[in-house]
């Protein structure tokens, strides 16, 4: 089965988190997963446009879904916020045919496009588990990360509300841990792994935002984690770029899950642009 997806990059992977884009492309190429970047897809709205106008946000996302359907491909998200927002929109449309037809009417009027409701929308990690398979991933590993204790940080949009989550048990998930394990690393489950990173209120209440990130990083550290693994570049941004302001002594590398996989596939820190992180790889992570 050839694995080919419409890649929805999201804004951050094209902006402040370009290393995520690099790592995703490198890892997918190595694993034989073909990506077609949706250069014409618009920002998912991150739950912010819907604060202003929910229906506009839904029309924009319906357009994105239509673009993938036109290409005959399922969507791969690499940002869990985009994933959560897309899924919420998709569930809302599919459970309410009346609303869907209004959204489609607007979409058609402005763009001539139509969302049919057939596209599958998943995050990179879920695609890896479901379509690629952990056994194959294990076989692809050339450099098992046996000396790394890795604490997964899921991100709210991966988990809640439950009906938009594609995890098997969003109150106690293990999907990220299973990937970490397949790479030969030791997953660390720490108390704050399902909490919020605080990024969405960075501009509204920086103190609370940083406290949330700080608590999560400390919790991972206390549990013996060498690094925090994220699947959302916004969590990454808050925990990495603001870490010196939260507590400079934390010194906790924050690693996109694609980067962790890249390391296990034999790529270097430079390949994966890990040196662009504010917190440079230290300890066990640096030694790979």
């Amino acid at each position: 089965m050839s694995l080919k997806y419409a890649l929805f990059t999201g804004c951050v992977a094209k902006g402040a988190g370009r290393e995520l884009m690099t790592a995703t492309e490198l890892v997918c190429r190595k694993l034989g997963i073909e990506l077609v970047e949706m250069t014409d897809a618009a920002c998912c709205g991150a739950g912010v446009i819907s604060e202003d106008n929910e229906m506009v946000a839904d029309i924009i996302n319906a357009r994105t879904f239509a673009l993938a359907e036109e290409r005959g491909l399922d969507i791969m998200n690499i940002c869990i916020t985009c994933q959560g927002v897309h899924r919420k929109c998709q569930v809302k449309l599919s459970s309410n045919p009346d609303y869907m037809s209004r959204v489609n009417a607007a979409l058609k009027e402005q763009t001539g496009r139509e969302y049919k409701g057939t596209v599958k929308i998943r995050h990179f990690g879920k695609i890896l588990l479901e379509d690629y398979g952990l056994d194959k991933l294990r076989q692809a590993v050339t450099k098992p990360l046996s000396n790394i204790n890795a604490g997964a940080f899921y991100g709210c949009y991966a988990l809640r509300p439950h009906e938009y989550s594609d995890l098997e048990n969003p109150d106690d998930p293990d999907e990220m841990e299973r990937i970490i394990e397949a790479l030969g690393a030791k997953p660390v489950k720490y108390p704050e792994r399902l909490k919020c990173c605080g990024f969405p209120i960075l501009m509204m209440n920086k103190r609370n935002s940083m406290a949330l990130s700080g608590n999560a990083i400390k919790s991972a550290k206390d549990a013996g984690s060498d690094c925090v693994i994220t699947q959302c570049p916004l969590c990454h941004l808050n925990m990495d770029a603001y870490q010196p302001e939260i507590d400079p002594d934390l010194n906790m590398p924050i690693v996109h899950i694609q980067q962790l996989i890249g390391l296990a596939l034999g790529m270097s820190h430079d390949d994966l642009k890990m040196n662009t992180h504010i917190v440079r790889p230290t300890g066990a992570v640096a030694s790979i």
Partner: peptide, 9 residues
């Protein structure tokens, strides 16, 4: 209302 992170809990 703007201080909520919409974490969904």
């Amino acid at each position: 209302v703007w201080d909520c992170t919409h974490c969904g809990e």
